[in-house]
Design a protein around this nucleic acid. Sequence first.
DNA 1: GCCGTTTTCGGCCCGACTGTTTTCAGTCG
Length: 576
Amino acid sequence: MRNKEVSQKFYELASLAELAGENPFKVNAYARAARTIENLPGPIEDLARDGKLTEIRGIGSGIAKKIVQYLETGKIEKLEEFKSKVPFSLLEMEKVSGLGPKGAMALYKHLGIKTVEGLKKAALDGKIRSLPGFGLKKEENILKAIQGLRKKKEEKRVSIGLALPLAETIVDFLKRNSPIERFQICGSIRRMKETVGDIDILVTSKESEKVMKTFAEVPMLKDVLVSGETKTSILTNENIQVDLRVVEPLSFGAAIQYFTGSKQHNIKLRELAIKKGYKINEYGVFEVKSGKKVGGEREEDVYDLLGLPWIPPEMREDRGEIESAMANDLPILIESSDIKGDTHVHTRYSDGANTIEEVAKKAMELGYEYIVITDHARALGVASGLSIEEYKREGREIAELNKKFGDGFRIFLGVELNILSNGSVDFPEEALDLFDICTAGVHTGLTQSKDKMMKRIKNVMRMKKIKIIVHPTGRVIGEREGYDVDLEELLEEAKNTGTMFEINANPKRLDLNDINALRAKKMYGLRFSIGTDAHSKEGLADMKYGIGIARRAWLTKNDVINTLSLREFEKFIKSW
DNA sequence: GCCGTTTTCGGCCCGACTGTTTTCAGTCG
């Protein structure tokens, strides 16, 4: 699948075209195509081969031709043409905050600057301030940005596991120290995206100055980037940008719709609005003719007026949700309250922090009907993996606890087996009858070739007792890419063997991710388990992240096995 | 360069803030 690679070329094309001063709409068309290709559900090579590229929205004959040219020759003529006109390194320069295409080009043309290093030198020498359109302040800001004192444009995105709690802490601080009425965390956090670029918080208040002042005094403040009447942006100690907007209560719905995004989703909604004679902005929905405001207090207003049902935030990525809403066949997404148990939990038997009883009690507090204890098997030495004898002991403890807890709750004896380098697991297949549920995952030999990796995983998927492959791609967000596998082939194998994939809810993993889970369901009809991989009782709360990914993958209650009631779940695992 | 229930031309999402200006362009989200 070469989607990523092709998409990258169109991003480059868009940026260079922009620098070269091309028609902005043309630039936008390239960028839009890049985003579309990036999010394509299947390989672009297939569409190119079948001559179906122009069936994709935003890809016409011109861009289709360029895609084919790239796939066949590895080059796009137009891109090479721009590269000869504009230094490629200007793209790096544009990443300096506050510097856009116009600025970068002016610096290049007048001062011959084409690298960040050169930019720094010119700023230190005080050469930038005299350029038309620039000044002392701008020179200072450029220097600050290069020296990392201000936010860098491509500051690494942070895990939602970090961003969500931080956003909640800030909202809490505002609630305690300033006169806010309503509030909503918006942006990619509300859409439950796996990583977050910045945090958007929206509030209503009668005294916006007070709120802004309080906000600029949050304990984790590093710098105030922007401060206006309705908008303030800060940088936290950990270099995360947080934007706060204050709006009138009558605009609250339109504002949270607007600031939840995604950008692509909103652009499409606004295009739809124009066709219907409306204009949408963050203050409301307006009739174009009369200029009269016709809605905006509730978020539903925005969708209502366009003749659409309310679309859940997690779906708002312009991946077909608007078309689906128009046809009135939005799926009823899975919710936290649908979850009846956790399928992936560790205890002190292996590398967890709590006893089985402690974990089980926490699960009951969460309203679960069951939990699957999946301690590591013996081959994983670093996680003090268990022998069969030790699992038998764990099984006896579980049996006793089950007796103690009675009918309403059940602990299952599971196992997280290791998919070993030679394609076997820790124990011979006969020994697996001991377990209620067998899951398996790759933990070692992560750098094996794709060929070997595929063989070992497929081999394990074919074992009758093993029904769930945990963290199937092995990626750890911000730390390592997944191991080298052909996911298409694995999905196909899962369909043929009746194996399920886990959606690992640990915010560092979230594996399968939303796009892959969506594809697994849509193209192969697969079902999933959502497990937290908790190594302590507190870790069970990570389920919300897994639910977020499932909702982003358009999954319903029926697509996830741990929404089954205890009785249904027991029956289900016996039928394996 | 794309697109069409205003269809083959003439549009293309919209507003806040900053720094440079003296009415606005550039950048950002």
